[in-house]
């Protein structure tokens, strides 16, 4: 099975979404140009557990341009954009993702990512890295049982010893992986992309700040002016949300 998505006929709509994202991601497009020339990822098998969005598609296309074979699964059961998943599937990316997965389907997807025997993992929340480690260490849980349904019977200890390294996108994942490193269970090096200045100072603040309000307003269409808003947590995300709110209603 090369892919499992909701409806591959959505691909054309997905391509338009991805084109739109590419138009607004000039830095990544510059990196893609270099990747096309240098092929730094030739023959590299990557499994990524990321939100399957139009922006992720731009990243995946860039990795493919660098010579990699990419498997893409979600990092949240509800965050997949089905049009984007369809477009990537049609382009030959091993996509196992649709919006509205239950827990079993979600970990089936994670298991599928593992079954592709990656040498690099990419994570947003660390579910892929953690599940691979649990399988390699023989830790049993409902999650690993679901993952095994698609990961198949293989030597996970050997698989994990072949992994060059992994990346982690978000604060929550970095915290989990640091805990594993501290405990001595981590089996391959991780680059905490979240900890780059050009990530957390912008994505966590301006990205989440704006998109959280976008989500709330699209969901409810309520007027924010005049409301009392409570933000729990004043990390980079919390301050971004509070800051954008101030811009929306001019509160002090």
């Amino acid at each position: 099975m090369a892919y499992k998505v909701k409806d591959v006929s959505l691909a054309e709509k997905g391509r338009l979404l991805i084109d739109w994202a590419e138009r607004h991601m000039p830095v990544l497009m510059k990196i893609r140009e270099r990747f096309i020339k240098d092929k730094p990822l030739e023959g590299v098998k990557i499994s990524a557990s990321l939100h399957v969005t139009k922006e992720t598609a731009v990243l995946v296309r860039t990795l493919v341009a660098g010579g990699a074979t990419v498997t893409l699964v979600p990092s949240n059961p509800l965050s997949t954009q089905d049009e984007v998943a369809a477009a990537l599937a049609e382009e030959g990316v091993h996509v196992y993702a649709w919006k509205g997965m239950n827990e079993r389907e979600y970990y089936n997807a994670i298991g599928f990512a593992i079954s592709q025997e990656p040498v690099v993992t990419m994570d947003d929340g660390a579910d892929l890295t953690v599940t691979l480690h649990k399988l390699a260490l023989g830790v049993k849980s409902s999650e690993t049982n679901y993952a095994l349904e698609t990961a198949g019977d293989r030597d996970f200890a050997k698989l994990i010893s072949g992994v060059y390294g992994g990346t982690e996108e978000t604060t929550t994942g970095v915290i989990r992986l640091r805990a594993m490193a501290k405990e001595g269970t981590l089996r391959y090096p991780i680059i905490a992309v979240n900890d780059s200045y050009t990530k957390y100072l912008f994505d966590n603040r301006y990205g989440t700040g704006q998109s959280t309000w976008d989500g709330i307003l699209r969901a409810t269409n309520i007027l924010v002016a005049g409301k009392i808003v409570v933000v729990a947590g004043y990390g980079w995300v919390g301050r971004g949300i509070a800051m954008r709110l101030r811009a929306l209603v001019h509160v002090g």
Partner: peptide, 11 residues
């Protein structure tokens, strides 16, 4: 999710 311009840097 996040607007493309900010994911440009993250990704």
């Amino acid at each position: 999710g996040h607007p493309s311009e900010v994911m440009d840097m993250s990704f």
